[in-house]
C-alpha cells in the first residue's frame, strides 16, 4: 500500500454501527500493517472518553482517529454529538501539554455513502501526514 503516513502508529476508534462486518473487513489492514495500526471498536462513538484518546497517545500512537456515524444517524440519537465534544476536549488537553491538537481527529462519514471500516482507514492512511512521530514515542 502506498501509505503516506508510513512509519506513524495509527489508532482508530470507531463506532461499530458503521460497519456490521468490521471484524472481517479490518483484517487485511491488520495483517499488512501489524502493530502500526490498532482498531478499537466501540458500541457507539458516544462511548468514547477523553481518557481513551489520551491513553492511546500515551501507549505510542502518533495519530488517533475517532470514526463516528454521520450527524443525525446515531443509533443512540446523540452519541456522535457527544463524541465531537469529547474529541474537542481531548485536543485542548493535549495542546496544553505541548502536543499538536491535530493528533486527535474526529472523522464522520456521510449517510449517502456508507463505507466499510477498511475503506475509511485506507483513506486516512493515504492522506498527507500533518504530524510526525509523537514526542511521547520518540522519548521512549
Amino acid at each position: 500500500m502506498d501509505q503516506k503516513t508510513a512509519g506513524l502508529n495509527i489508532t482508530i476508534f470507531f463506532c461499530q454501527q458503521l460497519d456490521i462486518d468490521q471484524d472481517k473487513n479490518r483484517r487485511t489492514l491488520e495483517k499488512e500493517l501489524g502493530s502500526q495500526i490498532r482498531f478499537f471498536p466501540l458500541p457507539c462513538s458516544g462511548r468514547i472518553d477523553p481518557l481513551h484518546l489520551l491513553r492511546a497517545l500515551e501507549s505510542g500512537a502518533d495519530m488517533v482517529y475517532l470514526i463516528a456515524c454521520p450527524e443525525g444517524a446515531c443509533r443512540y440519537r446523540e452519541g456522535n454529538l457527544r463524541a465531537r465534544k469529547r474529541v474537542g476536549y481531548a485536543q485542548k488537553l493535549i495542546e496544553e501539554i505541548g502536543l499538536e491538537g491535530a493528533r486527535i481527529e474526529l472523522i464522520t462519514g456521510t449517510a449517502a455513502t456508507p463505507a466499510t471500516i477498511d475503506t475509511i482507514a485506507r483513506e486516512l492512511l493515504m492522506r498527507d501526514a500533518t504530524v510526525g512521530i509523537s514526542p511521547v514515542r520518540s522519548k521512549g
Partner: peptide
Amino acid sequence: HKGLNPSYKA
C-alpha cells in the same frame, strides 16, 4: 444506558 455489545455478538 445499557445496550447490547456489538463486539459480543461478533
